[in-house]
Design a protein around this nucleic acid. Structure first.
Length: 248
DNA sequence: AAATAGTCCAACCGCGGCGGC
DNA sequence: GGCCGCCGCGGTTGGACTATT
């Protein structure tokens, strides 16, 4: 179909982004938003294609990105969500605040898949970060003032903080809900977060908002994409949920 | 100290879906 | 109804980095 070519390769930069490019992109998005990715690089004066800019922003420069190792809870959540959703990384990422689909995909392929197939006891979640520090620091340097203090160097589940706006979820019709959820400067997530996160995919739609509290991660908010997913999630849960799933 | 193997992750590529014309 | 353009997604890869020999 009329798919646009990836980018006109003539004269456009490729490969790793420089700190300068990063700051230009961040500054431009902060000022003008990103309503049109294709036009953005031109407007910002970047020699990149729109796709590349979008990817860079979503996976790296977004202020609400949570850096650092995945916790055991997060990994478990990914495993569970993957059982439910399959390789729909973006859907999984939408339920893990601060994590990108790319990151989740990487973790899945490098750790979780092995863990599941090998049945080996996973050690990464508790292991000290070996390599990430450098790149993370670099990223922090790049992000500079645009970065909301997302997490401590070694983010713990109990003190995880996320940005005021959740870009991944605020992009659609559930923006109001999102705003409500992230209305404070810092959003504390306690240890029950992950179990609740998973539970919410069920509760919020089959029983409505019984708690009377808006759910930050509410996948059942009237977002078009999630409606279908929640329907299937509900169906799945009603059919017996995870317990009936064979172990991978 | 150097070479090699293994791991991790940022970025690219190509496809499908959606909306506008 | 069909074409076109854009966006978002998932798969893949190349290079940087660390661990081991």
């Amino acid at each position: 179909m009329g798919r646009a070519p990836c980018c006109e390769k003539m004269g456009l930069n490729r490969g790793p982004w420089t700190a300068e490019e990063d700051s230009v992109l961040v500054a431009h998005i902060e000022r003008h938003g990103h309503s049109n990715w294709r036009a953005l690089p031109k407007q910002a004066g970047l020699l990149r294609c729109g796709k590349s800019c979008r990817l860079r922003w979503i996976n790296y420069l977004r202020p609400d990105i949570k850096r650092g190792n995945f916790t055991r809870e997060e990994e478990d959540a990914i495993i569970n969500l993957h059982q439910l959703l399959g390789n729909r990384w973006s859907a999984i990422a939408a339920r893990l605040p601060g994590r990108t689909d790319n990151e989740i995909k990487n973790v899945w392929h490098t750790h979780l898949k092995k863990r599941l197939s090998g049945g080996q006891t996973q050690q990464r979640a508790t292991a000290a970060p070996k390599r990430k520090a450098k790149k993370t620091e670099a990223a922090a340097a790049v992000n500079g003032p645009t970065t909301i203090p997302v997490s401590s160097p070694e983010p713990s589940l109990s003190t995880m903080t996320v940005a005021t706006e959740d870009y991944s979820m605020a992009s659609s019709a559930d923006q109001n809900t999102t705003t409500d959820c992230f209305s404070s400067e810092e959003f504390q997530i306690d240890d029950s977060f992950w179990s609740e996160t998973l539970a919410m995919t069920v509760d919020s739609s089959d029983s409505g908002m019984e708690s009377g509290e808006p759910h930050c991660m509410d996948s059942a908010s009237p977002s078009s994409n999630n409606d279908d997913m929640d329907f299937w999630l509900n169906l799945f849960i009603q059919a017996g949920g995870m317990q009936n799933l064979p172990q991978i």
